[in-house]
Amino acid sequence: MLINDLVNISFWTGSPDIVYNLIGIVLFVIIVSIIFSVYGYVIGWLERKLIARAQYRHGPTYVGMWGILQNLADLIKLLAKQDLALENADKFLYTVSVPIILALSVFIILILPYSPSLQATNLGFGLIIAFTIISFLPLLMFTSGFATGNKFADISAQRSVLILISYEVPTLIVVAGIAMLSGSYSFQGIIQAQASNFYFAALMPIGLIIFFITMLAEFERPPFDLREADNELIAGWLTDYSSPYYALSLFIDYARMFLGSVLIAILFFGGWLGPILPPIVWLLLKAFIISLFIIMIRATAFRMRIDRILRLGWLWLVPLSLINLIITYIVFVGLPT
């Protein structure tokens, strides 16, 4: 509570003075960046440790205590390498794509609310903006894949489009159901609606499952990681990215992990709602548990094939999400009061 009083972002941003607003925004960006970096770093380390444990291994042990500095060491190693691009690469797109993907991911992270006091602004259409940008990310992977001029990246780029067309539709239908339930397009409105009611996970369990699957597919988590399928495509659209770009791609991984977990926590598990502990702790705790779940899926799942993904998307997820929408409408919205 003390922390919330000290850095009450809505106090700064709600002020009519533009200088106060600017200070508030800078403070917010710094705080969220710290949260996101620490969270991403811890998850990145835990991912290695947990998967190692699932495989009778120890994971990183040498760098720092329990190998906690291993990812930092890897990052330094990557940055120290030579940056090479192919002769036939499209230099502009090659240079620009990966930073833009990271920037857009971070942008969505910045428009999310983290506690009643820790939010940049109450965007009336936050939900729509977030999912517009999320839909845009595979397109950028497509361009960056083609820009490198590598054939493996080309195949990966084609897959990226196929995933886009099979997973955007069910995602957006589920999101429409959420908007219907809460009667709001803003994240704050959605959390308020869950405060006065049950969490949406209880109200639309089918929607939660579909949304979870589509988030895995959107953010290239196994078993839907076939854009980066290392067995056949080496590293997919990242095959010919080296040094700083590849390091950025690791940031993108953690950013998307954080983003996906926090989105699920906000949309289905009531965001910061919870007793006793401060709101921000509740939100991060929920996101953390979801992240652990995603990691354990990575430790066990086989990779799906592209045609099966299309089939799953159009034969199961789209009809189920429509059914979810209809049930939601009839049961929770359409009933005369």
Binding site: I51, Q55, Y56, R57, P222, P223, L226, A299, F302, R303
Partner: peptide
């Protein structure tokens, strides 16, 4: 298992 895209778990087991 590894060839089918599993992250080395079956292989290590």
């Amino acid at each position: 298992c590894n060839d089918l895209g599993q992250m080395f778990t079956g292989f290590m087991w």
